[in-house]
């Protein structure tokens, strides 16, 4: 099969050294590691959006940064536009940077408070030497500001981040990410901090821009409901593993993995009738820490269906219907 995917990762692993205080260091001999990402594989076809969902600490952000090679993987491969970029040095990555961008959760933290927003959006053009001169770059920025609905763009160009609202700031960050006309954008909780009505405005903008620029997104979120509007496929993470992957419909109406089932049953729906009839399957306890993750299936200590094998071996990934993959012993081929 020919690999047409724009982005493909295979068996990505990332371990971090544990942040320890002085006392802890005195008492621990062995070097402990945080198992942030433990063998993640997925592909994203050009023009598609993959949603990465999961609870806090499940490894979503780490995965997003690995894909862009903002951090080095402990193991595994990353392919971008068919090319293996895993061994590339930062200098060799540079020409690729304009093709891959990231939008973070907190726009205030990712904007320089002393830089006019027009200049902030122009900055990537300067770095990648795009545009003939300053005047042309300014034209490009104004056009981009218009596209993200910061109108009139001339007026917004000269404002500072603190002089605009949170939703408008996130528009600036999106404009800055798209000004180099990238192919691939990682959106890490890009709309999480915004209010409902503003969140929907931004989501709509991201969907429109995706069509206009034929963008491919990795859309990271802990909010399952927002994935419906923007994602073609969804991958569910738990403790550094992708435990299930499928279309929104697969994940939402036929979740297979016990963790996905729990996650979906826990989402509060803005509809009292649904809430009354919804069957909840809330596991007790909380996610174990990633320093000593449980052996076997990472979900087994909380799983209502666990069998003996679950605590011994990690389940292999099984495709239960076309494109719907799950890593759980219940579905193991006999």
């Amino acid at each position: 099969m020919k690999d047409s995917a724009l982005v493909a990762v295979e068996n990505l692993v990332k371990h971090f050294p544990v942040r320890m205080n002085f006392i802890q260091m005195l008492f621990t001999r062995e070097k402990k590691k945080v198992h942030a990402v433990n063998g993640v594989s997925f592909k994203i076809e050009e023009g598609q959006t993959l949603g990465l969902v999961g609870e806090s600490g499940s490894g979503k952000t780490t995965t997003g940064r690995l894909v862009l090679k903002l951090i080095e993987p402990t193991d595994g491969r990353i392919k971008f536009m068919g090319k293996d970029i895993t061994p590339l040095k930062p200098k060799e990555m540079r020409p690729l940077r304009r093709e891959m961008q990231i939008v973070f959760q907190d726009p205030l933290a990712s904007l320089n408070p002393y830089m006019k927003i027009g200049e902030a959006v122009r900055h990537p053009l300067v770095i990648h030497k795009i545009g003939r001169n300053r005047i042309q770059q300014r034209e490009m920025v104004l056009e981009m500001l218009e596209k993200v609905n910061l109108r009139p763009p001339e007026e917004f160009y000269n404002r500072y981040p603190r002089q605009i609202s949170g939703g408008q700031r996130q528009r600036v960050v999106i404009a800055r990410a798209l000004i180099t006309r990238p192919k691939f954008v990682v959106a890490d909780e890009a709309v999480a901090m915004l209010d409902v009505s503003i969140r929907s405005q931004l989501l709509k903008l991201m969907v429109d821009l995706k069509k206009e620029f034929n963008l491919t997104y990795l859309f990271i979120t802990h909010d399952l409901a927002t994935t419906k509007y923007i994602c073609d496929r969804i991958a569910v993470m738990y403790l550094g593993h992708i435990v299930e992957e499928g279309s929104f419909k697969d994940i939402y109406s036929e979740p297979a993995h016990p963790y996905t089932k729990a996650l979906i049953s826990a989402v509060p729906e803005p509809d009292p009738k649904i809430m009354k009839t919804k069957k909840k399957m809330i596991p007790s306890g909380e996610v174990p820490n990633a320093i000593e993750p449980p052996p076997g299936c990472p979900f087994h200590p909380r799983c209502p269906h666990k069998k003996a094998v679950c605590s011994r071996t990690f389940p292999e990934v099984v495709e239960i219907s076309e494109g719907h993959k799950v890593a759980c012993h219940i579905y193991a081929r006999r």
């Binding site: 929907s200 405005q201 989501l203 709509k204 909010d223 419906k228 929104f248 109406s253 979906i264």
Partner: peptide, 16 residues
């Protein structure tokens, strides 16, 4: 404007 999880209804509304 609140995202719901009904699969059919994919139109995103918002308050300008």
């Amino acid at each position: 404007s609140v995202p719901n999880t009904r699969i059919e209804d994919k139109e995103l509304k918002y308050i300008d």
